[in-house]
């Protein structure tokens, strides 16, 4: 403890004892903050207080002795503070690393949506925490075809982000082969099954949209079913599909399905962050989700995605417990 600190401390105590003014207490608060910023420990402050009392006048022996007890107790407080300070530094370092990882994760996700005549595409993806376990991918293969993938990786955070990079690089490599959806999932399952933690798995829906014929051919690996809207009937159907999630069993096969879209029809691909929403004490039912979507059928694909997100957020009182991703593909 420097002499300068002790002099300031002495002046504050002396002036306060003379007049007991509020401004002296305010000065003491400021000094406390300054001492903290200089990592002065509680036991040093206790010693300083004892020294200052001796400078200001005769201190009875029992008060001098009692400071021994206070100092011992303050040493423990000091140890706790130093431990907290060290933890805080580590936490700040970890936060900085997570910020970098979050930025890197963003580079794995496409920034723009495919543009094709007569197809309106909308998308929204909101992570529940800093790092998302939801993954989506578009690949424009030709003037008339693009592929779309939506996936949910078990859990969130860094393990999910690491798995996401594996998925992205596998999809980039396999993308050049223009595999049929079932084959794509079969290859991805082989990669994921060999390289993922046993507790993790990935659900995915992968499809190819032919914009000349408006045919969507897709396969599903454990993914929450999306919706198909038929404009002529003004009715929603489940986007059915069956197939084991990626990473669960080697050698899994994935059945392909095909849908022809008429003008006004649209597809909704989603993750379970959309459907597994708790409103009060109960989970929203798919029929209720359909009711909300029915009010959006005339909106553009992007408006539909944005509106549903906002309405669900409002219903769940602004809680977003899981990553939320929804893709809308509409034939105009």
């Amino acid at each position: 403890m420097s002499q300068e600190n002790e002099d300031i401390y002495t002046r504050i105590v002396r002036d306060y004892l003379k007049g007991k003014r509020e401004d002296q207490l305010y000065l003491a608060q400021q000094l406390g903050k300054w001492l903290l910023s200089r990592n002065i420990s509680p036991e040093e402050v206790t010693d300083m207080h004892a020294n200052v009392l001796e400078h200001l006048g005769d201190v009875p022996e029992f008060i001098q002795d009692s400071f021994q007890i206070l100092t011992e107790i303050m040493i423990e407080y000091g140890n706790a503070y130093r431990s907290f300070d060290s933890w805080r530094s580590r936490h700040q370092q970890l936060q900085a690393e997570i910020a970098i990882a979050t930025a890197m994760q963003q580079t794995l996700l496409p920034e723009t949506l495919p543009q094709y005549p007569n197809v309106d595409i909308g998308m929204i993806s909101i992570p529940a925490k800093e790092m998302s376990g939801d993954f989506y991918h578009f690949l424009c293969e030709s003037k008339s075809e693009f592929t779309v993938a939506i996936a949910d990786i078990t859990g969130k955070g860094i393990p999910a982000a690491m798995c996401m990079s594996m998925l992205r690089y596998a999809m980039d490599s396999l993308g050049e082969m223009k595999l049929a959806p079932g084959n794509m999932l079969r290859h991805l399952n082989s990669v994921v099954e060999r390289n993922i933690d046993p507790c993790m798995f990935v659900t995915m829906q992968f499809g190819r949209y032919n914009t000349a014929q408006h045919v969507f051919r897709y396969a599903t690996a454990g993914q929450e079913p999306g919706f198909l809207y038929r404009a002529r009937e003004n009715r929603f159907f489940d986007l059915e599909g069956c197939g084991t999630a990626l990473g669960i069993a080697a050698g899994s096969e994935y059945e392909e399905r095909e849908i022809y879209l008429e003008p006004g029809d649209f597809l909704i691909l989603l993750t379970d962050g959309v459907t597994e929403r708790k409103i009060g004490r109960y989970y929203i039912q798919r029929e209720e989700l359909v009711s909300l979507l029915e009010e959006e059928t005339s909106a553009s694909a992007q408006e539909m995605a944005n509106h549903l997100y906002r309405r669900l957020l409002l219903l769940s009182q602004f809680e977003l417990p899981d990553d939320y991703t929804m893709i809308v593909l509409r034939r105009t």
């Binding site: 507790c199 798995f201 659900t203 669960i248």
Partner: peptide
């Protein structure tokens, strides 16, 4: 009443073991 993907993942890990 409720199981999330981390719960399912536990059964997957046990099944693999």
């Amino acid at each position: 009443e409720y199981i999330d993907s981390t719960g399912i993942g536990t059964f997957v890990a046990a099944m693999k073991a």
